[in-house]
Every structure is written in C-alpha cells, then in structure tokens.
C-alpha cells in the first residue's frame, strides 16, 4: 500500500465519518465544526491531485469564509446548549432507505462504467501562473467572461445580503 493510498483512505474516511456526524449531531456548533473537518479533508484531496491553488481556495474560502459565516449565524440564532430533538424514526428510516437506494444505484452504475482516460496527452501544468493565465485569458482556454460574471454575482449577492439582513430603519 503506497503512501498515496494511505493518504486517500485517511482523507476519505475523515470525509465520510464527519459528513455523517455533520448531519446527525444534535449540537449545531459541533455540526459546523465537523463540516469544517470535511472541507479541510476535501482540500487535502485537492492537494493529492496536485491542484494546489484550488486547495488553497477551498481552505480560505470554505473553511475560512463560509464556515466562519455559518458559525456566526449560529451564534446569532441559537444558544450554545441547545440540542435538537431527535428525528422521527419513520422519517429517518424512510429517508435512509431512499438515500441508500440512490447511493446504491449511483455507485453500481459508476462501478459498471469503464472510464477511458484521454490517451497520449501531456498533462498541463497546474501552478498558479497557469491558473492565472487561463482565468484571465480571453483566447482559447480563457475564462475571463465567467470570471467577470461571477464577480458581478458576488457583488450582487453581497448587496442583497446587506439589504436583506439589515434592520428596518423605521
């Protein structure tokens, strides 16, 4: 068993276990914390695949941004000692059945499918320079337009969030 495999199994088991804990924990703050672990482990997977920039984005944006945002909102809307009532068994069981069937169907079809890698191609460099060139490029393999669109979206959502969340002045 190579180091890669050990690393993958480590990350994968962290992701699965903490995902389950995220959706089943009765304390909301712990849920947020477990989510953080999941996101960081995902960043670890990105590192394994040599997408360093993406992994950095994952950690800074997700772990540093979204999870912090979530924790703040939790602190605003809940008390630390609050615990959720346990889910109704009927609902839990039916949902487990549905999701298990879905997972089974998806996984079985994934395993049956034979993915063919592109043969004889040179892997592209994934360093920050390349990412920056493509992200702001407007020729072939250039992503300037989506980048701009996303920037507008972010601006809009920022203004929207402020408008929605602020107290009425009257």
């Amino acid at each position: 068993m190579s180091v890669n495999q050990i690393m993958f199994i480590l990350f994968a088991s962290i992701i699965v276990i903490f995902s389950i804990l995220t959706v089943s924990s009765k304390r909301i703050l712990r849920s947020a914390l477990y989510l953080l672990f999941v996101l960081v482990s995902t960043a670890g997977l990105y590192f394994m695949m040599n997408y360093n920039f993406l992994a950095a984005v994952q950690i800074t944006l997700y772990a540093g941004g979204i999870v912090v945002l979530i924790i703040f909102s939790v602190l605003l809307t809940s008390r630390i000692n609050d615990r959720f009532a346990s889910v109704k068994p009927a609902k839990a069981i039916s949902t487990v059945i549905v999701t298990a069937i879905g997972a089974f169907v998806s996984i079985s079809s994934i395993l049956q499918h034979n993915f063919v890698p592109a043969a004889g191609v040179e892997p592209i460099s994934t360093d920050v320079k390349m990412v920056g060139m493509q992200l702001l490029g407007y020729g072939t393999n250039g992503y300037a337009l989506p980048f701009e669109v996303i920037s507008v979206l972010l601006l809009a959502s920022m203004i929207g969030a402020i408008i929605i969340a602020k107290k009425k002045l009257d």
Partner: peptide, 16 residues
C-alpha cells in the same frame, strides 16, 4: 425534497 429524490431515483431506474 424526499418525493423529488424518490422520483428522480425511480426515473433513473426506469430509464436504465
């Protein structure tokens, strides 16, 4: 949501 998911799974099963 659960009905939607069930329906999607059922459709997938039927089509496959």
């Amino acid at each position: 949501a659960i009905v939607f998911i069930s329906g999607v799974i059922a459709l997938v099963l039927i089509f496959s």
